[in-house]
């Protein structure tokens, strides 16, 4: 008797599976594939789709939430974040002086966002990130701060707006060139003129 019950149950499972696939087949509106280049203007990305990271601003104060603690820098497996910080004289809190994001090294894993304890980082869904040269992918994320405008030509020649400048570049014992002894300068200036 058991075998008949089992058979019926199995058949029910198979039929419900077939019903599901037929439901998808019969309703083309359920298709989730996007015909990307054609529907670029009407493209709808899923909410949790993740591409490059961005800093979150506090809606009230208009300041970045980032307090330049450096957790994201430590969390990043590829060293794609470099961070210098200074103490804000008004609030007596640390703020990022330059939050440099190396998208050419980033693998969009989201570990930095997970590591952030201050809700300062998020993954955006900007996925059209193609560039002509790797240098174009280096970006300063806190670009709305007046001292860190998007002029990347001064990366590496930064002057501290405050004497309390401290670097928050990784303290880990890596012997990678970018970070060993990166107390003062974290990024080498590069010639960014188009070739």
């Amino acid at each position: 008797m058991n075998i008949f019950v089992k058979t019926l149950r199995g058949l029910k499972g198979l039929l419900s599976g077939m019903g599901l696939t037929f439901g998808y087949f019969a309703r083309p509106s359920k298709v989730i594939t996007q015909q990307y280049p054609e529907n670029r203007n009407t493209l709808k990305l899923p909410e949790r789709s993740q591409a490059r990271i961005d800093l979150i601003k506090n809606a009230e104060t208009g300041r970045y939430n980032c307090i330049a603690c450096g957790l994201c820098v430590k969390a990043c497996p590829n060293n794609s974040i470099e961070l210098t910080k200074f103490k804000d004289p008004e609030t007596k809190k640390f703020r990022p002086e330059k939050f440099v994001y190396h998208f050419e090294r980033c693998l969009v894993c989201g570990l930095c966002v997970e590591a952030c304890k201050f809700d300062a980082l998020r993954m955006t869904s900007e996925f059209e990130t193609a560039a002509w040269s790797p240098d174009d992918l280096v970006e300063i994320l806190n670009k709305d701060d007046p001292w860190a405008h998007d002029d990347k030509s001064d990366i590496g020649q930064q002057t501290a707006p405050d004497k309390n400048e401290q670097t928050a570049s990784p303290a880990r014992d890596t012997d990678r060139q970018e970070h060993t002894g990166a107390e003062e300068k974290t990024i080498q200036p590069k010639d960014r003129s188009p070739k």
Binding site: T21, F22, Y24, F25, P28, K30, V31, T33
Partner: peptide, 13 residues
């Protein structure tokens, strides 16, 4: 095409 539409895809386009 059938494979695509059964998996919420569209197949060759």
């Amino acid at each position: 095409k059938v494979a695509g539409h059964m998996q919420q895809r569209v197949g060759p386009m």
